[in-house]
Computed example of a mutant assay.
Amino acid sequence: MNLRSTLIALALVLTGATVATASGTASARIRTVTGPDAPRALPEQGPVSVTWDDPANFTEIRYSLNKFESRRGDWVEQLAQHLRERAEKRLPPGEQLLVNITDIDRAGAYEPWRGVQFYDTRFILDIYPPRMTFNYRRIGAGGDVLAEGEREIRDMGYLMTANPYFNSDTLRYEKAMIDRWISQELPRPGT
């Protein structure tokens, strides 16, 4: 294969297409949060249950100026797992927390007008704060509902507050926002 054929094959593989090559067939799929095989809930385990609506309807994807990059990866599942892990640590014994995520808008945005070289760059600016909307129900050890409702959390000052996560964590702003909600909703005993 010459260089041109190799580059074309690579581009097709990166977009999820099947490529016939001289040595056989190459196939690769990029995982997306909107894929037909993408989960819509975390596996049932422990006292915290997290589900989510179709991410194709999330603000992050609907209003993105780079829908391909916005769909890429498993960021919805990662945020759901983070929410579960943090809530489990603070939930009193015997209680349950049921969460259904209805919308996510990640920190930052794509700005294609900056040029082709920045097509897949997420610009983290204060005008693009992280937001999340979800319904939740907190159930006591006796089965009574302790709290429920819809919450829209956002972090308007996300660039000005301390963030405990590494800069390499692409979800650090969303995780810090979730942590703040959990610390308010599930305060430690005696605080």
Rank of each mutant, 00 (worst) to 15 (best):
M1C: 09
M1Q: 14
R4T: 06
S5I: 00
A9I: 02
A9K: 03
A9Y: 11
L10Y: 07
V13F: 10
L14C: 06
L14A: 05
T15E: 09
G16Q: 15
T21Q: 01
S23D: 15
T25D: 13
A28D: 01
A28K: 10
I30C: 13
I30N: 03
P36D: 09
D37K: 06
D37P: 04
A38P: 01
A41Q: 08
P43F: 13
E44G: 04
E44P: 10
Q45D: 11
Q45H: 09
G46W: 11
P47M: 05
P47Q: 12
S49N: 14
W52S: 00
D53M: 04
P55I: 00
N57F: 09
R62K: 12
E69K: 14
S70R: 13
S70I: 04
R71V: 06
R72W: 01
G73K: 03
G73D: 15
D74Q: 13
V76I: 08
E77T: 11
Q78N: 04
H82L: 07
L83T: 03
R84N: 11
E85K: 09
E85N: 07
E85D: 10
R86P: 01
R90P: 01
L91Q: 05
P92L: 11
G94N: 08
L97S: 00
L98Q: 15
L98F: 02
V99M: 04
V99F: 07
R106C: 05
R106I: 03
G108H: 12
A109S: 12
A109I: 11
A109P: 04
A109G: 08
Y110D: 06
Y110I: 08
Y110A: 07
Y110E: 09
R114V: 09
R114D: 02
V116T: 08
F118I: 02
F118N: 09
Y119Q: 10
D120M: 04
F123G: 12
D126H: 12
P129H: 03
R131C: 12
R131A: 10
T133D: 11
T133E: 02
N135V: 00
Y136I: 12
I139F: 03
G140Y: 07
G142E: 09
D144P: 02
A147F: 03
E148V: 01
G149C: 15
E150Y: 05
I153E: 05
D155K: 14
M156P: 00
M156T: 15
G157T: 14
Y158W: 10
Y158Q: 09
A162N: 05
N163H: 15
N163C: 08
P164T: 02
F166V: 05
N167K: 11
E174N: 09
K175P: 13
K175T: 05
K175R: 14
K175Q: 13
I178A: 13
D179L: 06
D179T: 00
W181P: 08
S183W: 00
E185L: 11
L186I: 12
R188K: 02
P189V: 14
